[in-house]
Amino acid sequence: MAAPLPEAIQTAVVTGGARGFGATVCRALHKDGFRIIVTDVDPGREASALASELDLAGKTCMTATLDIADAQNWKYVLDECTERYGSVEVLVNNAACTEAQPVLDIDPAKFNEIMAVNAGGTFAGCQIFGRHFRDRGYGRIVNLASLAGQNGGTATGAHYAASKGAILTLTKVFARDLAPFGVTCNAIAPGPMDTPMVHAVLGDDLDKALANIPTGNLGDPEFVAEMVAMLCTTRSAFVTGACWDVNGGLYMR
């Protein structure tokens, strides 16, 4: 099963791509020559503005509405992408939600909701796009995990931490099953990055959080986005089932 030639234009779907770190990933991939599908549960003006920024003519970038917790939504987006560009080669599972709460205060319904969106959405995306990649004999999946899924999370909530731990396991499962078909599946587990989401979660505790990070600073979203782009290239064929840690020394192994 032949992989696309390195010079071929590949199409990448990025979930939660309209703002924050997702938008940074979209910019990094587009800079490296990928066509970009900016998806979000509510794309709105931010997604349209990003698409125009990347390609005002709209030839190498489009937006799509995607509720990652709805498997049928995933199918619609895949069909829309293949109808326009012929195929999709890359999926970046970035979208996630959380609500920081002490573990003893989390309502079970809220726990299940966060798990359904974060872990369930990643599962649905890997499964539906994984079938497409398998049938084509090529594909790249990058899942955004988190330090919280490795150390239990202290500021993000038990539901978020559990969902990110599940994503790490799902990455291994899909990596193993899809490897014979030229498809890789990797995870990146950032620590706290300099993003709006992290600032919103930490709030007044930012200085305290920085004091606990060995390197003394938040992560650079652009650097992490470049890691995503690297794992999406044809050159990354021998890397699969791996978790790439970027956490300022908060979790060493």
Rank of each mutant, 00 (worst) to 15 (best):
R27V: 08
R27Q: 12
H30M: 04
H30L: 01
H30C: 07
D32H: 07
F34Q: 00
V38P: 03
V38Q: 02
T39N: 12
D40M: 04
D40T: 03
V41H: 07
V41W: 08
V41E: 05
P43E: 12
E46C: 10
E46M: 08
E46S: 15
A47S: 12
A47N: 10
S48P: 00
S48N: 15
A49H: 10
A49S: 12
A51M: 10
S52G: 11
L54K: 11
L54G: 13
L56R: 14
A57P: 02
K59T: 15
T60G: 12
T60H: 10
C61E: 09
C61H: 09
M62I: 13
M62H: 08
M62F: 07
A64W: 07
A64V: 02
D67M: 02
A69N: 05
D70A: 13
Q72K: 14
Q72D: 11
Q72N: 13
N73T: 02
K75E: 10
K75W: 00
D79V: 08
E80I: 08
R84D: 08
Y85D: 13
Y85A: 13
G86C: 09
S87C: 15
V88Y: 07
E89K: 09
E89M: 01
L91G: 05
L91E: 00
V92E: 02
V92G: 09
N93E: 03
N93Q: 00
N93A: 07
N94M: 00
A95L: 05
A95R: 07
C97Y: 13
T98H: 06
T98S: 14
A100P: 15
Q101N: 12
P102I: 05
P102K: 09
P102W: 11
V103G: 06
L104V: 14
D105C: 09
D105K: 15
D107F: 04
D107T: 12
N112A: 15
A116W: 01
V117D: 03
V117E: 03
V117T: 12
G121C: 04
T122D: 02
T122W: 09
T122I: 06
T122S: 07
F123K: 02
A124G: 06
G125N: 06
G125W: 01
C126Q: 02
Q127N: 14
Q127G: 03
I128D: 11
G130W: 08
R131G: 07
F133V: 03
F133R: 01
R134W: 05
R134T: 04
D135P: 01
R136N: 11
R136D: 08
R136C: 07
G137Y: 04
Y138P: 02
G139Q: 00
L144Y: 00
A145D: 02
A145L: 04
A145W: 03
A148V: 10
